[in-house]
Design a protein around this nucleic acid. Sequence first.
DNA 1: TTAAGTGCAAAAGCTTTGCGGGTAG
DNA 2: CTACCCGCAAAGCTTTTGCACTTAA
Lengths: 147, 147
Amino acid sequence: MDKKTKQKRVELFERQCRSQGVPFTVQRRAILETVLEFDNHPTAEQVHDAVTTRFPGISRTTVYRTLETLVQMGLITKACHPGSVVRYDRRIEVHHHLVCQRCEEVVDISDERLDALPVPDTSSLGFEVFDFRVQLRGICRRCRKKE
Amino acid sequence: MDKKTKQKRVELFERQCRSQGVPFTVQRRAILETVLEFDNHPTAEQVHDAVTTRFPGISRTTVYRTLETLVQMGLITKACHPGSVVRYDRRIEVHHHLVCQRCEEVVDISDERLDALPVPDTSSLGFEVFDFRVQLRGICRRCRKKE
DNA sequence: TTAAGTGCAAAAGCTTTGCGGGTAG
DNA sequence: CTACCCGCAAAGCTTTTGCACTTAA
């Protein structure tokens, strides 16, 4: 992610904090900046390791709590695929995942036709849909070779 | 799930075991039958609690291991949404999920237009796609009322 | 017979909680 | 000033592992 986009996201975060009365702390800023530097889907642990270089001594607890806060504020997303570890994702725009059912590897994929998916009417369920993800399930190259 | 369908699934499991040389044990049978009785998405723990009435003394370890085996054999599926606990699902046919980003509740949804999704060509990635799921992300009724 | 599954107990993650002290608004 | 956040340590849950015994094929 280029510097400009990153800065914009941080500024957006600051504005949202101000307007919602949520304290904009150095730790939170550092954690958001760190997540934005990942191209893939880091775990909380990986974010902690990475943010430590920028903010030595920051606690794991703070990282866990802050990541959750960022998700609630819609600044990052939380992805969870088989493998049972929560992963975070700086991408808030639509994209999709290929998930291998054998080794549980996850690969990002973009596809216009998927993005144009007709979102069903869920108003009868009281559900307001903002976003969607498609999980394509199958077998990756490596696992296919093994068989 | 009605008795007949359930029995068919158990028989399918038995046949697959025979042909693949995988031992068809009483425990595995009991676990599969138990999962098939859930309408929703039970956790490994819930499956263990339920199977215990049918098979007292069965170990948690066996339940964990067997659920994974069943997934690998394609007899049940594994669903993982925010909330970080793996859930299992007797449904192997296509269906989709509404996921609340606040409370992480998961609701099943069926929609023909979603089922007709154009699956992109992933052969260049070496990925063979068998199946897909759409995860619709938003806010559920209860959480919307709170705000 | 023999390769694989099962149960137990213990360990190994990952994540949350309680609380005293600190900081943003 | 006051409410909320942070760090620490410890607990809590879910899941996995090693090993001796049992079982399906």
